[in-house]
Nucleic acid binder design. Structure first.
Lengths: 214, 214
DNA sequence: ATTTTCCTCCCGGTTTTCGGGGAGAAATCC
DNA sequence: GGATTTCTCCCCGAAAACCGGGAGGAAAAT
């Protein structure tokens, strides 16, 4: 069997070093190269054409999920393993919708990585237990809605979110759209429910993250 | 010469692993123990009484600078090396005022750490070059150039702004910083005045724009 | 040594947000 | 045609944000 080739993308050299060392100790895998800049990685990874992509979630510029989303468009067969420091439900769900093949926490031991690599190379998926816990614990809340964040919003809601993120007050938004304040409040509540956040700060973050406003 | 004893505090096991491995390869240094919880570290470090403390800046609960500040009160002779992922002028300044002995970036190679350890053990200080660059660029900036609003904030205000932009409620921020809600509200008011915005949405936008949060 | 900024906390008050609802009309999906 | 979603607007109450100010102590700057 051929060795499975790996490319790592993580903005922290220390993490890259750690990962590299672990991978070298696992037979059957070969580390092609590493990137600490996700934008550069996006350009260069097609050239390397690895079997498996090991990518950090939290990165400046382009985060891990966005990187995966764009690469999967052109290379749907690429296996991806997402590394993260903190768990949040929305991200886990988005990762699932992107068919990320493994999702592991950085602060767990290296066996996690080994297992993830071996599973993924056998066309299986792997999610570390805290990840699945997060999903199960909240699954009753939404039942079936596989919310890929902002796509669940209606046009009107997206419009309102945009204005909220531009720091307009509810009254200003109402005036601008010629609607009642209560209507904007209703929309805001719906948006918060759908995006799973409990205050405007969360809304603004997501809106900016999703490029709704710059 | 006796071996210099080291304690590591970092919330990510992978970083701890990497650091441990590097330290083991450097003669003259001995790793006593590691902590991934800064609160626990604060309690236990006096027992170990290490020569050198290697501590991550970004940690939940108590961040690296806070940890150093408290330990230095009782153990001013303790050598401290601060590891960080991102540079920001305010933090660098605060680190200097706390007499942190070395300040290095995680995403640099392990020679950095080695050099820092050796310098610190010889009662010298070490700051990786991007750190000093940041300092220099600031003093140049004082003369003229456009102050980007956020520079007018105090350290505390910047810290509070960061948490606001991360969508924490005022009460949550107060708890996290062990302050009264009224204090956070005062800070928020000051921040809003300085940044010339009238709601959290504006704060979040600016914070993200300025790279205070990603 | 004195001024100034920073940090902390408080007061009283108004406005807005946030979390539950409900409800009717229109558009869209099946 | 019927069901569902969307959009609009309303109610309530609790919580939080927002606004203006004061004030004392610590720390830093001059």
């Amino acid at each position: 069997m051929d060795k499975k080739s790996i490319v790592i993308v993580d903005d922290h050299q220390m993490i890259i070093d750690g990962l590299s060392r672990i991978i070298q100790e696992i037979p059957g895998f070969e580390l092609l190269t590493t990137y600490h800049d996700s934008i550069e990685a996006l350009k260069k990874i097609p050239i390397w054409n690895p079997d498996i992509l090991l990518v950090d979630l939290e990165m400046p510029g382009l985060n891990g999920l966005e990187l995966i989303r764009r690469l999967k468009q052109d290379f749907p067969e690429l296996k991806t393993i997402l590394l993260t420091m903190h768990l949040d439900r929305a991200t886990v769900k988005e990762a699932l919708s992107l068919k990320v093949n493994a999702y592991i926490l950085k602060n767990l031991d290296e066996f996690e990585l080994r297992i993830a690599l071996e599973k993924v190379s056998k066309d299986q998926n792997y999610y570390s237990s805290p990840v699945t816990e997060v999903l199960n614990s909240k699954s009753r809340q939404i039942q079936k809605t596989s919310n890929s964040q902002i796509d669940e919003l209606s046009n009107r809601e997206r419009e309102v979110l945009k204005l909220i993120a531009e720091a307009f007050s509810t009254k200003e938004i109402a005036d601008q759209l010629s609607l009642e304040v209560s209507t904007i409040e209703t929309h805001r509540k719906s948006i918060m429910r759908k995006l799973n956040t409990r205050n405007v700060a969360g809304l603004v973050r997501i809106a900016i993250q999703e490029g709704l406003v710059s």
